[in-house]
């Protein structure tokens, strides 16, 4: 699947490990929450896939071992992932990659970035152009968010060009 980072399609090194499959020997492993305990091992690059009902607390203890947290959006209308991403950043200080996966619209791209999401997994064959356009569209915002932005005053800030 194409992976979008800063509006550009990039290589995705991660392998999603099904629950019944062994962990890959040397590729970074993306596992489900269920398998997280057994997957934690020194030296392994590890990522976890969080379902929409997950809370940041579910992975809080494992954060030092995690390089990637993939947050699932079952339907673009389901906005729980925005709060999840933001809580991971703001409350738990997670600095690794947060990836949005699932059903997401380009119109939501800015919101995702502002909530602390770093990358978006696009469906196979998706055109990155509308995503790039969505990034260019808004240069201003009215509230603090998880992403670092240049505040103009308490409420208003100018969004950096990606």
């Amino acid at each position: 699947m194409p992976l979008l980072d800063g509006g550009h399609v990039v290589e995705d090194p991660w392998v999603l490990v099904p629950d019944d499959a062994p962990f890959p020997a040397d590729a970074p492993a993306l596992v489900t929450l269920k398998r997280l305990p057994e997957a934690r091992r020194p030296g392994r690059r590890l990522g976890v896939l969080l379902g929409p009902a997950s809370r940041a607390e579910d992975v809080a203890a494992a954060l030092p071992d995690l390089s990637l947290i993939a947050v699932e959006f079952p339907k673009f209308r389901d906005g729980r992932g925005f709060s999840l991403a933001r809580t991971l950043r703001e409350r738990h200080g997670f600095t690794g990659e947060i990836r949005a996966v699932g059903h997401i619209l380009p119109d939501q791209y800015r919101f995702l970035l502002r909530c602390g999401v770093s990358t978006v997994a696009l469906p196979e064959g998706a055109d990155p152009a509308p995503w790039q356009a969505a990034l260019g569209r808004f240069g201003v915002a009215y509230q603090p968010a998880a992403a670092e932005e240049a505040p103009l005053d308490h409420l208003r800030r100018r969004l950096a060009a990606p």
């Binding site: 709060s83 939501q108 800015r110 919101f111 909530c115 009215y142 409420l155």
Partner: peptide
């Protein structure tokens, strides 16, 4: 103030 804060709020636009 609430109007501004809630305008295109990145976290609370898909409640």
């Amino acid at each position: 103030i609430i109007r501004q804060w809630s305008t295109l709020h990145p976290e609370f636009s898909f409640l």
